[in-house]
Nucleic acid binder design. Structure first.
Length: 958
RNA sequence: GCGGGCGUGGCGGAACUGGCAGACGCGCGGGCCUUAGGAGCCCGUUCCGGAAGGAGUGAGGGUUCGAGUCCCUCCGCCCGCACCA
């Protein structure tokens, strides 16, 4: 390691010079301390955490630790460019928290592994010809080194990588568990496929076509089972991305119809792909959010993504047969004056009359050519054409025309709607545009008319918009259903639903926006599926003893990519080309048979769906996790809350995973729970979203980012290379050319200063700008701390064994009290402020009493572990601070003998009085009214009222 | 448009259930130490004012003895969703 802190001009870069005292806390000293302690921790296995069972079981060690605590960072991707100072913000936060909790006696599980499959390594491999496994191993090694240099207190034995066959063996095993399960809608849980077969055999569950199970051919049985699996192959509309050469999940498509990686166009195509039946869990994924300690923002995003709507399916008779629509407002059925189908709806052809055939065909062609991007231009007017057919409104018996229009989406509900123009703004606009009838079925309240400046009327030609809300129904009665007396939507819905069910015209139902999860990718660098296909193309799961299916070696890693706009290209997976690997002869119970391997790989999300479970028991080769180990670390904490779901105690990461990773991981966890493999219902009991570190980024006139560190400012304008550039605010990163490397910080200040700065600059959940010049404040603080304990000239310890004076002692205990509270609440910025105050006070003393120095070092240990270890050691201790008890405040010292009360007159502070702490309100009031300044402010008037807030203040009202 | 969040010094940010606004850090000003200061230390620093004093938490209104904090209206910024029937 290079410890020379001079640059090529011989100028020191660490702020020291020849006159710097030899034992000052400088960057060089910090580096020496940090590297020494990092080596010591590793040598002594300081952060190794005992398990109750399995390969890492250490019952005696466990006995000595207190309650368990599982602290987790979101799984990082080992990027080839290494870390910048923005990355470790959350990592430092979890490290400080973990270290603090260890000092309160908790048995803390804290480690970090790597989500190492994925596109960047593969793309790098394609460019360089180097195998992604090599690149990935290098990147992982580099990142481990960088994390160690930060002083993170990870248990190194538990660090895993998704690309390790010993890991993905279990990813494949879990896939097999999901494949081998079906969702019992009645019991609301996943069950093994074997139990489905039993139910079919016994007849307790009817087969798809009603015949006896024994009458079905083996192929028919196979198909019946496959149709129920939680992981299934399906010909379904998927998002095909020619630019990436693969299909992607709905969650990976941005609002403007492009891939979130690479920003290529995405086309909807029907293809044969693996799907995960996440929709079966839609209700539980929504309902169990209530059990989680997550922010409302994230919960709301998940609820919106799942998009549960309750309403009814309603059947309409048409010339092409029954047409079913979904509506959230069945109560408005009397107002349905036309119907609209999505242009892609399968009944469109059958419903189109010859005289409308050409306009319908034209419209469908235009709508089809329009990508989702164009379809959602906000201001655009509604378009559509009539099919020429009509349907019968089941409550009115009226014939209503059927249109097609692209404001109705095939992907939601049934792809068809009943249009109620008086009660739905979109239908209202459409009806107005095309002159369709708008019958009124509710009488809006007078206030509604008043707001729109019109007289109350049921003549909707006078209405400026649709009315949505509770109001009495009108024109809403037939022989068997009458809503006339009803005034609330909920009641109208209830009565209509009853009627629909009684008359066979529909039923109450629930619809979700959530679609099943597209799970296959035509890529190389991912987990192979543990699946082979027989001669009939039916999938078979490989038995556990054949796992892992190791990713075959090749030097051709690239999927075939296409012109990003070539919608009609077809995916070609890299594994397809490996004939020798693809064709296998196996005995899966029916004698040796030839099979074809599945040539897809799993999406990157697969490995991160269960990694926290592997941290618990990373070396177990009998099970993905020992059940006792899982129960210990993640079991429900019913002692904390009766409905506690279990899971990780604290999960820290960015908001960008709000719907992707967090939804997928919850789904997998629930499947494992249903199958009895884990005791926790949810993977992450508490989620904390850390902010980002932002930095100025600069673009030149071409919109290209320029090196942010070469930009100069003149009169509020910014220049790069003499050319004007514009400043913007962005996340720190390589692409914005504004990344600051932690190595620069180590060289100038050391890792402890960097840690302290990142924690002090603001609350952990807030994004904040990186200000390189501010870092020095925390460096100075550590220098003052050092100087309070050690003589800068001799290196000798200067603490004295004489007792602290009462003021200092009181301040110490107040600080202990505050710091403990703030650390437990993840408010490290305010904890640091309190510690600086204490240290600033100590600095002014003639000598630092050991009585203060030791607790101060202990309190700082979670934040700046290296300098704390060093000082702790120099103070005469022989073991690590890691498991020392965090100081406890003496409650007696938290209360002062006397209290200073500000005295307000009419709400303004006019004087101050000092009163004995146990003085009663009358005494305080008397003293306040006697104060000279207060007397002057009152000016002789008689006080109307005197408010005394005990321990706080006095307010005199005149 | 809908949903969520946020507006406090020159800057990052403090302020527990309504109770002394601006903790702590940066920067800035002054001083010390120095051949030197881009190191370190000490003092000061919301604004106006010489001071006494006054004003002040995006704007306006309200509740209260008392509002950064609670309520209403508006303005601005950020995030998510986006014709979801």
């Amino acid at each position: 390691m290079n410890t020379d802190t001079t640059n090529s001009d011989g100028i020191r870069t660490d702020g020291t010079d020849a006159s710097t005292p030899p034992h000052r806390y400088t960057a060089a000293v910090a580096q020496d301390i940090e590297l020494r302690w990092q080596a010591w921790w590793q040598e002594h296995g300081t952060f190794e955490t005992p398990n109750p069972a399995g390969p890492l079981a250490e019952p005696e060690a466990l006995e000595q630790r207190g309650e368990k605590l599982f602290v987790l960072d979101m799984f990082p991707y080992p990027s080839g460019t290494g870390l910048h100072v923005g990355h470790p913000l959350g990592f430092i936060g979890t490290d400080v928290y973990s270290r603090y909790q260890r000092m309160t006696g908790r048995n803390v599980l804290y480690t970090m592994g790597f989500d190492a499959f994925g596109l960047p390594a593969e793309q790098f491999a394609v460019q360089t010809g180097q195998h992604p496994a090599i690149t990935t191993d290098q990147n992982v090694a580099n990142m481990r080194r960088q994390l160690r240099r930060l002083g993170l207190s990870h248990d190194p034995r538990r660090s895993i990588s998704t690309t390790d066959p010993d890991y993905y063996r279990w990813t494949q095993w879990i896939f097999g568990q999901i494949f081998d399960s079906w969702y019992d809608a009645h019991e609301q849980r996943a069950r093994p496929i074997a139990e489905l077969v039993e139910a079919f055999e016994s007849g307790s569950r009817p087969t798809p076509d009603g015949r006896a199970w024994s009458e079905l051919t083996p192929d028919e049985q196979h198909d019946a089972i496959d149709g129920h699996r939680l992981a299934y192959v399906s010909d379904a509309p998927v998002n095909w991305c020619p630019g990436l050469g693969t299909v992607v999940a709905n969650e990976e498509v941005t609002a403007d119809g492009r891939s979130d990686r690479g920003n290529f166009p995405v086309f909807t195509r029907t293809m044969r792909q693996w799907m995960m039946r996440i929709t079966a869990y839609a209700d539980r994924l929504i309902d169990d959010l209530d059990l989680l300690d997550w922010t409302d923002a994230i919960k709301t995003m998940q609820r919106n993504w799942i998009g549960r709507s309750t309403g009814a399916n309603v059947h309409f008779d048409t010339p092409a047969g029954r047409l079913t629509v979904f509506t959230t407002r069945p109560d408005t059925l009397f107002g349905a004056s036309f119907m609209v189908l999505a242009p892609e709806h399968p009944l469109v052809d059958a419903l189109t009359t010859p005289d409308h055939a050409s306009t319908v065909a034209d419209y469908r062609r235009t709508a089809g050519a329009k990508k989702d991007v164009d379809r959602q231009d906000e201001s655009r007017e509604k378009t559509g054409v009539p099919t020429g057919s009509s349907a019968v409104n089941p409550v009115t018996g009226h014939e209503i025309p059927i249109w097609i229009a692209d404001y109705v989406l095939m992907g939601y509900g049934t792809g068809a709607i009943m249009a109620v123009p008086c009660g739905d703004q979109r239908d209202f606009e459409f009806a107005r545009r095309f002159g369709l009838a708008i019958p009124a079925i509710q009488r809006p309240p007078d206030s509604w008319f008043e707001r729109h400046g019109i007289e109350p009327t049921l003549d909707t030609t006078a209405w400026p918009e649709a009315f949505v809300g509770d109001a009495p129904y009108v024109n809403s009665a037939n022989d068997s259903l009458d809503l006339t007396e009803v005034t609330e939507v909920a009641e109208g819905v209830r009565l209509t639903n009853e009627w629909l069910e009684a008359h066979g015209n529909g039923a109450a139902t629930v619809t979700y926006k959530l679609r099943d999860w597209l799970f296959s990718r035509q890529r190389y660098w991912g987990e192979p599926f543990p699946i082979v296909y027989d001669a009939n193309g039916r999938p078979h799961l490989l038995p556990d003893e054949q796992l892992p299916v190791v990713l075959p070696d090749t030097d051709s890693f690239s999927p075939r990519t296409f012109d990003p706009d070539d919608e009609f290209s077809n995916p070609e997976s890299p594994l397809d080309r490996l004939d020798a690997w693809v064709d296998v002869e196996l005995d899966l119970g029916d004698g040796p048979t030839r099979y074809r391997r599945d040539t897809n790989v799993m999406p990157q999300w697969a490995g991160s769906c269960w990694y926290e479970l592997r941290y618990l028991d990373p070396t177990n080769d009998e099970a993905f996790v020992d059940p006792d180990v899982e129960r210990y670390w993640m079991g429900p904490r019913t002692d904390v809350r009766p409905d506690h779901p279990g899971g990780v105690d604290l999960y820290v990461g960015g908001v960008e995973h709000a719907v992707l990773h967090l939804l997928y991981a919850r789904f997998w966890h629930k499947v494992l729970y249903d199958l009895g493999h884990v005791s926790s219902k949810e993977p992450y009991a508490r989620l904390f979203n850390q902010g980002y570190i932002l930095a100025d980024a600069y673009q030149d006139t071409r919109g290209i980012y320029v090196d942010a560190f070469a930009v100069t400012e003149r009169d509020g304008e910014f220049f790069h290379d003499g050319q004007p550039v514009t400043r913007e605010w962005g996340k720190m990163g390589k692409s914005l050319k504004n990344a600051v490397s932690p190595d620069e910080m180590y060289e100038q200040y050391g890792a402890d200063t960097l840690r302290l700065y990142e924690m002090a600059m603001g609350p952990l959940d807030a994004s904040r700008p990186w200000e390189a010049r501010d870092v020095v404040g925390m460096y100075r603080f550590l220098q003052r701390l050092w100087r309070a304990v050690i003589d800068e000239h001799t290196g000798a310890i200067t603490v004295v064994d004489t007792p602290a004076d009462p003021d200092t002692r009181r301040l110490l205990h107040r600080t202990i009290d505050a710091v403990a509270t703030e650390m437990a609440a993840l408010r490290f910025n305010t904890a640091i402020a309190k510690l600086i105050e204490l240290n600033n006070h100590v600095t002014k003393l003639d000598a630092t009493p050991r009585e203060v120095a030791e607790p101060m070092v202990l309190m700082l240990a979670p934040l700046v572990p290296h300098v704390a270890e060093e000082l702790w050691c120099r103070l005469g201790h022989t073991d690590t601070v890691t498991y020392e008890r965090f100081p406890a405040a003496d409650p007696e010292l938290l209360v002062d003998d006397t209290v200073e009360y500000p005295v307000q007159v009419n709400g303004k502070v006019r004087g101050r009085i000092t009163v004995h702490a146990d003085a009663d309100a009358a005494t305080v009031e008397a003293l306040a009214l006697a104060d000279d300044k207060v007397v002057a402010a009152i000016g002789g008037a008689a006080p109307k009222k005197v408010i005394v807030v005990p321990g706080r203040m006095v307010n005199v009202v005149v």
